[in-house]
Simulated assay, not measured.
Amino acid sequence: MKAKSKAQQKAAGAALSAKRGEIKKSELQGASVEMYETMTEEELDDMASTEREDLPDKIED
């Protein structure tokens, strides 16, 4: 699944770093905590690798 916003892509990158042990899970905030707990490393890698150029900053609910 590709990221739909720059914020989502950034959160996925943080969650991926925690999955890989590069940062502590306790350093995660907001959406990245839920992503860490519910997504696989492969899913996070796919979302984090989305090109940011054409993405909006945020998507409002």
Rank of each mutant, 00 (worst) to 15 (best):
T38K: 09
P56G: 13
A14L: 15
G30A: 00
I23L: 11
M1Y: 09
A12Y: 01
S49P: 06
A12K: 07
T38V: 00
K25S: 13
T40V: 05
E51G: 03
E42Y: 07
G13H: 01
S5I: 08
M35Y: 07
A12M: 08
S32Q: 05
E34R: 06
E60C: 01
G21Y: 11
E51V: 02
E43Y: 03
G13V: 00
G30T: 03
T50D: 07
K10H: 14
E60M: 04
M39F: 03
E34Y: 00
V33E: 00
A14D: 13
E37P: 01
T50A: 02
K24N: 15
A18K: 03
T40D: 06
Q29F: 10
D57P: 07
L44E: 00
A12E: 02
K10V: 14
M35H: 00
L55H: 07
T50S: 09
R52Q: 12
A7N: 15
E37A: 09
A14V: 05
E22T: 11
E41D: 02
K24Y: 13
I59Q: 09
D61R: 02
S5T: 14
A11F: 02
A18L: 07
K24I: 14
E41A: 07
A15G: 08
Q8V: 11
A14N: 11
E60W: 08
S26N: 14
A3I: 04
S5A: 15
K2G: 10
K24F: 13
S26V: 11
K6I: 15
R20L: 08
L55E: 02
D57K: 13
E27L: 11
E60G: 04
D57F: 12
S49E: 10
K19R: 10
D45H: 11
K25H: 11
L16V: 02
R20T: 02
K19W: 01
T38Y: 01
S32T: 04
S26R: 14
A11H: 06
L16M: 04
D54I: 02
S32R: 03
S32K: 02
E60F: 04
V33R: 08
T50W: 07
T40K: 07
P56E: 15
L28K: 10
M1N: 11
S5K: 10
L28F: 08
S26T: 13
R52W: 15
E51I: 06
S32I: 03
L44C: 05
T50N: 08
K2M: 11
S49F: 01
